[in-house]
């Protein structure tokens, strides 16, 4: 299975994960600082800043785009419960 490296800059952990995994699942497993509320892409709690590898995440859905807009998030911000890992990325909690 294809693998990618996800680095959580707040806790300094790099995790090797199967491509397609959602960022929140990884954060939860390794105790990084990304936290979640609804896990349905609605509440915005899991907002994260993607420092590297912006193009290595799945495209945001219409719903995620809307939540990002309502939260006035900048262009390198994503919801960890929605974004799936496609390649190497570095993230931190927003």
């Amino acid at each position: 299975m294809a693998k990618a490296k996800v680095t959580f800059l707040d806790t300094g952990v790099t995790v090797s994960v199967p491509v397609g995994t959602r960022v929140i699942e990884i954060s939860e497993k390794v105790g990084a600082g990304l936290i979640y509320g609804c896990r349905e892409g609605d509440c915005g709690t899991c907002l994260m800043k993607v420092e590297e590898g912006w193009n290595n995440l799945s495209e945001p859905s219409v719903v995620e785009e809307k939540v990002l807009r309502e939260n006035m998030a900048g262009k390198h911000f994503r919801l960890a419960c929605q974004a799936q890992v496609l390649g190497d990325i570095s993230v931190r909690p927003a």
């Binding site: 707040d10 790099t14 995790v15 090797s16 994960v17």
Partner: peptide
Amino acid sequence: DVENRIVEM
């Protein structure tokens, strides 16, 4: 002061 560690999921 976090040590970068690498883990397999």
